[in-house]
Simulated assay, not measured.
Amino acid sequence: MPTISQKATAMPASPIRKLVPFAEAAKKRGTKIYHLNIGQPDIETPDTFLNAVKNADMKIVEYSHSAGNESYRRKLCGYYQEYNINVDQNDIIITCGGSEAIEIALLTCFNPGDEIIIPEPFYANYNGFSRAADVIVKPVASSIDTGFALPSIEDFEKQITPKTKGIMICNPGNPTGRLYTKEELEALSILVKKYDLFLLSDEVYREFCYDGMEYVSVMHLAGIENNVVLLDSISKRYSACGARIGAMVSKNKEIMAAAIKFAQARLSPPTYGQIGAEAALDTPKSYFTAVNKEYVSRRDYITEALNNIEGVYSPKPSGAFYCIARLPIDNADKFCQWLLESFNFNSETVMLAPATGFYSTPGAGFNEVRIAYVLKIEDLKAAMTCLEEGLKVYPGRTI
């Protein structure tokens, strides 16, 4: 039998989805599972999106332009303008979710063997797509003890070699919930200028910033306009994960002229998703006000509940809808599997994402998990009860 490729062998499994077989088996045994492992909100998708799709009057579902429908791109410019991001429709390529935006950006900006510096822990797919593009991830560590603040510029600079081509960040952050400050980003921009690096920024959670903290985009940073690539998605903004609509945005004409060739190779982004996304730009502000308020309540509950469990620590996130928790356990991968395979409390258990998959440094995050607080508080309470009871009897508990 022929062997599969080395690239396929090296491709990491998703820490978010790799435990699915164990969850499916638990459900077959009659165990109810609270899914805190994946950023799939239980918030309803706005009617603006759903009604546009329902009412679409088409006889043929045609290909769109490879860059996405021009009407959507033009309207999207108005959305960005609300955040003081000034672009035109030619600066935008609509992608099949934020994931494809990441993939196309890496393929456009990096050669095989080039290095990209990413603060860890980071969204697991950065690692997967970098592997697929033969780009080498050079992690720079952030710490749970500092609330995952952006590492110092000195720490970034220590990672720079002749092969370094760029830096990638997520702001607000997945998996940490960290929101970087203007001062942190301006310091980073100095480094980008000094070494003439690309700066890729995943900003899909900009709607979800808490406690009066300000969202600052890399597109606001002066003097590096041609270095910056913004990565975006509607998945979380409108709770429309299955629509698979994202965007790659840059004012660098050379980047966009090259990126469109990758977009042409996959033909076009989803037609119905674009129809819904364009209409969703008219979603009233009241929708986001209510959603933001709900996430603040969930965040406040989950962080208090976690920190009230003996031996658990979790810093309070300032954005997105994730947090990292440090647990008194020997191995996060084993613990998360054990919760599904060997534990239940009143026929219920909780599914978490081992944080090891959000690091590229071997051994890092071994006692941490990522929690997505995407369920209503009633379910979060039940999930935290399962976690607390599970920690009491887990064979690999460390304290």
Score class of each variant (00 low, 15 high):
K293S: 14
E294N: 13
Y295I: 11
Y295K: 04
Y295R: 02
V296L: 15
V296W: 07
V296T: 14
V296M: 15
S297C: 10
S297L: 14
R298W: 09
R298C: 08
R298F: 08
R299S: 00
R299F: 00
R299D: 03
Y301D: 10
Y301C: 11
I302D: 01
T303F: 05
T303E: 09
E304L: 03
E304N: 13
E304Y: 01
A305V: 12
L306G: 01
L306Y: 09
L306C: 13
N307L: 14
I309R: 04
I309L: 08
E310C: 06
E310L: 11
E310G: 08
G311A: 09
G311M: 10
V312S: 09
V312E: 11
Y313L: 04
S314I: 07
P315S: 11
P315H: 07
P315I: 03
P315C: 05
P315K: 07
P317T: 08
P317I: 11
P317S: 11
S318Q: 14
S318T: 15
S318R: 15
G319P: 06
G319K: 08
G319D: 05
G319T: 07
G319N: 03
G319A: 04
A320D: 14
A320S: 15
A320L: 10
A320P: 05
A320G: 11
F321A: 12
F321R: 04
Y322Q: 06
Y322S: 12
C323D: 04
C323K: 03
I324C: 05
I324E: 00
A325Y: 01
A325M: 08
A325K: 02
A325V: 07
R326M: 06
R326V: 04
R326T: 04
R326H: 09
R326D: 04
L327G: 00
P328K: 02
P328C: 05
I329R: 00
I329S: 00
D330N: 13
D330V: 02
D330C: 06
N331P: 04
N331H: 14
A332I: 06
A332G: 09
D333L: 07
D333S: 09
K334C: 07
K334W: 02
F335I: 05
F335M: 10
C336S: 12
C336K: 04
C336H: 03
Q337D: 10
Q337F: 05
Q337W: 04
W338N: 11
W338H: 12
W338F: 14
L339H: 00
L339V: 00
L339Q: 00
L339F: 03
L340N: 00
L340C: 02
E341P: 08
E341C: 10
E341G: 09
